[in-house]
Design a protein around this nucleic acid. Structure first.
Length: 656
DNA sequence: GGTGTTTTCGCCCTCTGCTGGGAGAAG
DNA sequence: ACTTCTCCCAGCAGAGGGCGAAAACACC
């Protein structure tokens, strides 16, 4: 029957893997490696489907027929493992949907049936494709979902295992699932419940339909496929149980129901979803719904249900930590804590892997929390605003924004903060000597915080599609920093040029004054003597000298000999001869230096570059410096000035 | 029922990044 | 005097690590 059918299976179908024997020891090792996360892994298989299939079929056909009776009759041994060896391959599944359970329809089974051989230890296992249902064997129906992932698709394979003539209950059949990584085989282990029932002389003959949902997801890091098994057990509608009593479930209805002679005992908790086939487990479970806590801590009077809970609790008081880490000084109350600690700190084993990204965690709760970053789920809603958090701590932290609580205080300046990290940054920036600086890679800017450097990069060094024009020339730029640097080149430029002569200046107001030297305009008239001036400051100086009785002219004395001068330049020239230029700065010079002191760091930078440029020839004078004749000539166009003017006087007047 | 193990929940922490207001300099 | 710009700074949220402890479960 199956031999011919299996000869050339469609390539896109599930491929049959070369059956292999899996030594018990290997199986045990596998179980140890798999842990209890309900996930097993299988190596992705390479090679052609055809060869695998062909090599797997013929010789094993006989084996199956021979071994099945043993499988049926033999009571499972302690170490018995039922091995399903398979290899997955894609097949057309446009119609297949993730949630499609149409495979329950026998008609659908004809589309693709895989007969699955349950092998005993030492018996080669087999999985092959066939059209006819193998009633005496386990039947496995696959639907593979391809839409979830494009390349290494999430494959959802749905198993229907029909067990007939199998002695014993198999309700916990799914309980142990592992696989042989090296061979790509999957092992299904019957649960011990079956064995127990058999040992109790319970179920003699039974027909059971057992459904599994197997989800296969690619694990790119390990070049593996992650298989997740879920039970699709079908049960009859439960009768409403009486309160406080366990619900005893009768066997499921199957086409072979008449063969079932014993009751499948399942105890259902009326308070939760807990079920168990063992009365002892059930009774123990029911205690969790009891409020009785007879074991009281003598130190804090806290009560516990069991002595173990109390003992662990008391250990937290006494500091008893019997489980010590061999790699560090940490110690823990329970062995589980030690294992977890070792995973975090030493082995870095992370069994819980995200199926969406490469994240892996030591604890399931961390993976659960991480998954929310993919789903966007925010279960913890703030009662005072619209904020919702992904975990409880963030909500609690958020609530400080409403309460105003600032639990973190700087021990130096006693400033308070809502978050510890904020306080830490405060101390680092305000009270630490070695404040870290972040150097901008594109300019000389150093910024105290990395996040601010990011803002700096975004504002100044990000390429802008829209052109930014220089305000002084037609040049255009695509980043602000280059634009600003360019515009600085215009800074000392004498952009205002006289149409009538070679005079040029940097400020427009200077040019306006200069133009009057060509037009002859003298708009400023002395009200006392009607004398006219081109500049307000010239008029003011004139007025002070000739019409202000309180005016006291400035005398510049040589610091060496005390000789007086009306012009600082003359005094300076004299002073150099008189003291060989080694004279300390005069009061006036000190004043000039002080007035030119930059008001801030930024001005200091620019001052370094422009100090020499700020000169008489450029049209800029030091405050307090006497205006030379040639400068005044340039400014006034040779207008007669009878008195010396100080530069700051002029500039002060001009600013008015 | 006792005991050990695993799971689950909760808390706190650090690191990171974004945001907006304030201060000061420059135009 | 006003605007613009930059840097500093605190506030706040996202993500994840690590651990304590209780609950749940498994085993004898």
């Amino acid at each position: 029957m199956a031999g011919a059918e299996l000869s050339v299976p469609p390539e896109q179908f599930t491929q049959i893997k070369e059956p292999e024997l899996i030594p018990d020891r290997a199986l045990e090792e596998e179980e140890e490696e798999e842990g209890n996360d309900g996930v097993c892994r299988v190596k992705e298989q390479s090679g052609s489907a055809g060869s695998d299939v062909e090599s797997a079929q013929g010789p094993l056909q006989t084996t199956i027929l021979e071994e099945v009776p043993e499988l049926v009759l033999a009571a499972p041994e302690e170490s018995e493992r039922h091995i399903l060896t398979l290899q997955t391959a894609r097949f057309p599944s446009e119609e297949a949907e993730l949630q499609d359970l149409s495979w329950l329809d026998p008609q659908q089974e004809d589309e693709m049936q895989v007969t699955l051989h349950q092998a005993e230890s030492g018996v080669q296992s087999l999985l092959w494709l066939g059209e006819a249902a193998q009633q005496s064997l386990h039947q496995c129906v696959f639907n593979v979902q391809e839409e979830v992932y494009s390349l290494q698709e999430m494959e959802v394979m749905q198993f229907q295992l029909l067990e007939e003539n199998v002695t014993g209950a198999i309700e916990d059949y799914k309980s142990a699932v592992s696989l042989e990584e090296s061979t790509g085989s999957i092992k299904l282990q019957k649960g011990q419940e079956e064995e127990q029932l058999l040992a109790e002389g319970g179920l003699s003959e039974k027909t059971e339909e057992q459904f599994f949902l197997v989800e296969a997801r690619p694990d790119e890091r390990r070049d593996e496929i992650v298989l997740t098994f879920s039970n699709f057990n079908m049960e009859e509608q439960k009768e409403e149980p009486e309160l406080g009593q366990a619900h005893l479930e009768k066997p499921s209805t199957t086409k072979n129901q008449n063969k079932a002679k014993e009751i499948k005992r399942t105890f259902h908790c009326n308070f939760c979803k807990f079920t168990s086939s063992r009365i002892s487990s059930f009774n123990r479970h029911m205690k969790i719904h009891s409020t009785e806590k007879p074991h009281v801590c003598h130190l804090c009077l806290k009560a516990f249900r069991t002595v173990t809970l109390l003992r662990n609790h008391v250990n937290t008081h006494t500091g008893t930590r019997p489980h010590k880490c061999g790699d560090c000084d940490m110690a823990f109350v329970t062995s589980g804590e030690l294992v977890r600690h070792r995973r975090y700190k030493h082995t870095h084993e992370k069994p819980f892997k995200c199926s969406v990204c490469k994240y892996a965690s030591v604890e399931a709760s961390k993976l659960k929390r991480h998954i929310r970053s993919h789903t966007g789920e925010r279960p913890f809603q703030c009662s005072l605003c619209n904020y919702a958090s992904k975990d409880t701590y963030k909500l609690k932290r958020h609530m400080r924004t409403h309460s105003g609580e600032k639990p973190y205080e700087c021990h130096i300046c006693h400033a308070r903060f809502t978050q510890s990290g904020t306080m830490k940054m405060h101390i680092l920036q305000k009270h630490s000597e070695n404040v870290p600086k972040y150097q901008c890679p594109h300019c000389a800017t150093t910024i105290a915080r990395k996040s601010d450097l990011r803002v700096h990069l975004r504002n100044l060094h990000t390429y802008e599609a829209a052109e930014m024009k220089c305000r002084y020339c037609p040049a255009v730029f695509h980043d602000r920093y280059t634009l600003i640097q360019h515009q600085k080149t215009h800074k000392n430029e004498k952009r205002f040029k006289c149409e009538h002569c070679s005079y040029a200046c940097k400020q427009e107001r200077h040019m306006i004054v200069h133009i009057r030297t060509h037009t002859g305009e003298k708009p400023f008239v002395c009200l006392s003597c009607n004398k006219c001036f081109r500049q307000q400051q010239l008029l003011n100086v004139h007025f002070k000298k000739y019409h202000d009785t309180n005016f006291v002219p400035t005398i510049y004395e040589c610091p060496k000999c005390g000789k007086g001068f009306s012009r600082w330049s003359n005094m300076h020239r004299h002073s150099e001869k008189c003291n060989s230029g080694q004279e300390k700065p005069t009061t006036v010079e000190k004043e000039r230096t002080m007035k030119r002191k930059p008001a801030n760091k930024r001005a200091a930078k620019e001052d370094e570059a422009t100090a020499e440029e700020v000169s008489l020839m450029s049209g800029e004078l030091f405050p307090g410096e006497m205006v030379p004749i040639d400068f005044m000539d340039a400014k006034t166009g040779g207008e007669d000035l009878e008195e010396d003017l100080t530069c700051d006087m002029i500039l002060a007047l001009m600013d008015k």
